[in-house]
């Protein structure tokens, strides 16, 4: 909705009004930086940030960190989302499994995702494996929930049709329940994608050994290199933006027949 508004206004001068706050902010920032004084350590000039960006590009440091963060997020999505979908299917199709699994699922889900990190760190060290587990877990929760809900919400009237035509359990699942639940499953995966990006940055900040944007930021912070930190924030933000944009586009596409119920 809002993205659309932005696009529509792209060629109208009113759009320029949106530039006022960031431009004023940057001018003030640059002024503080150039002025020096008490906060000189903190404020870096825009020229410095630009130089940092160029340097990080040139050394390949940025590409490496960005690539490993993105790789972590996507493999977490694949693993957590895959397992989550299977668990969601099992819970959605079998009442006994639902009854047995949901209290465990619901109690584990209460723990803030990064709160698991000290425990996982003790078990698996503070390397890539621990990070991947947390990122996968952040994809696991929403996919389980949305797969399960999607299957639960398949209406009894549609299942009656399957019974009238004597479809087997597998046929009913594959031809009716799965496609009926698909919009909800995709919603879960989209949410998982957004979550994995956030948790990737989080785990990299906490376990800052190894590659990754979060780790790079954390190292830069320890060396008081605000320029590098800002470049990282820029890339984290742009990726977040791209993910949200992608989700919006894909949902419109995938959910196109959602409003048209049987």
């Amino acid at each position: 909705m809002t993205l659309k508004t932005l696009n529509l206004n792209a060629f109208k001068p009113v759009w320029l009004m949106g530039l006022i706050p960031p431009v004023l902010f940057l001018l003030w920032w640059d002024h503080e930086a150039v002025k020096g004084g008490a906060n000189a350590l903190a404020f870096v000039s825009l020229a410095q940030v630009g130089q940092a960006l160029i340097d990080m590009f040139a050394t390949g440091e940025l590409g490496l960190s960005y690539g490993s963060s993105l790789g972590r997020a996507l493999s977490g999505l694949l693993i957590g989302g895959g397992i989550g979908t299977l668990v969601g299917i099992a819970m959605g199709l079998s009442k006994p499994i639902e009854w047995a699994a949901s209290p465990i699922y619901n109690s584990f889900r209460q723990v803030p995702i990064l709160g698991w990190l000290p425990l996982i760190g003790l078990w698996f060290g503070s390397g890539d494996l621990s990070k991947l587990i947390i990122v996968a877990l952040s994809a696991f929760y929403p996919t389980v929930l949305y797969t399960f809900e999607g299957l639960k919400q398949v209406e009894a009237r549609l299942l009656d049709v399957a019974r009238v035509y004597r479809l087997s359990g597998w046929q009913t699942f594959w031809r009716i329940q799965w496609p009926a639940a698909l919009p909800s499953i995709f919603t879960g995966l989209f949410q998982a994608l957004a979550f994995t990006w956030i948790s990737t940055i989080g785990v990299e900040l906490l376990f800052s050994s190894g590659a990754g944007l979060g780790a790079m930021m954390q190292q830069a912070q320890l060396q008081a290199r605000l320029d590098i930190v800002l470049v990282c924030i820029l890339f984290v933000g742009l990726t977040g933006f791209a993910i949200n944009f992608l989700i919006k586009r894909l949902s419109q596409h995938v959910l196109s027949w959602r409003s048209i119920r049987a």
Binding site: D160, I176, A262
Partner: peptide, 24 residues
Amino acid sequence: LVFQDHRLFPWMTLEDNIALALTN
């Protein structure tokens, strides 16, 4: 059995909806 609402599956074409009845 014909229901009051058509209960066709929105993700299948008309042809596939009818063929579903012949699955087995």
